[in-house]
Amino acid sequence: MSVQVRDISVRFGRRQVLDALTLPEMHAGEVTVLAGPNAAGKSTLLRAIAQLLPHQGQVALDGQDLRQMPATERARLVGFMPQSLPSGSSLIALETVIAALRAGKTLPAHQADAAAMAVMEKLGIASLALEPLDALSGGQRQMVALAQAIVRDPSLLLLDEPTSALDLARQVRLLSELRRLAAEGRVVAAVLHDLALAAQWADRIVLIHAGRVHAHGRPQDVLTPALLAEIYGVEARIERCSRGRLMVLIDGERQLAR
């Protein structure tokens, strides 16, 4: 399975957020990280791929245009995890995961309940199942959002800053889960700000700057001091630790990367 994203343009009023952006083809088994400075258009791109906002250009899954598909069919194929879930509802966590299954298609209650519970268990948040969503912490809500995104067993998984509110253990848990989901034959694309995490977990990094793809490739090819200086305006060193992993060290005084 592969995903093609071609010539995506998005305008918000007068502002051209994305300008005919084309991503390298993404394949099953790969984790692609979208990185870049604030307001580069990463989240907008992710939402456009998920068909959540009006855009020009084409997103195709194995040649099938996502835009032409009925919403329910698309929901079966694509999972989207937002940066955060809105507060103010009095739903409990398990209900929201069940809603992610039953809003788009008819499913017997016991089957949906069990499937939602199994996903929460797999993510290590079974104990939160009966808690009101509003009572959960930011990190816990993010894990519930991930459960909502993967409960339909999608082929393409899109995640918007999935680790932004997670503690260290949960970050590792989420990222290894993403690796596992990819290994099972899915295409995974995530917006990440933390380049150290990206270096460790991504197969490929796409650096986005001012609505365009600035560079893409394997982490060791993309994460270079020159490119980071160009995009983020920081002085950076790329080192290898004793285990051979890439480390991104920022020396510059103005740390714009975070």
């Binding site: 939402r47 998920a50 068909q51 959540l52 919403a71 329910t72 069919e73 698309r74 929901a75 079966r76 694509v78 999972g79 989207f80 937002p82 879930l85 809105p86 509802s89 739903l91 209900e95 929201t96 809603a99 992610a100 299954l101 039953r102 809003a103 788009g104 298609k105 909502q148 995104a149 339909r152």
Partner: peptide, 20 residues
């Protein structure tokens, strides 16, 4: 009712769950 429940999580979420 399930579509409306999903909408309590916001328009983006409901849409990504397959709700028009």
């Amino acid at each position: 009712s399930w579509k409306l429940t999903a909408l309590r999580l916001g328009q983006d979420q409901a849409q990504s769950f397959g709700v028009d």
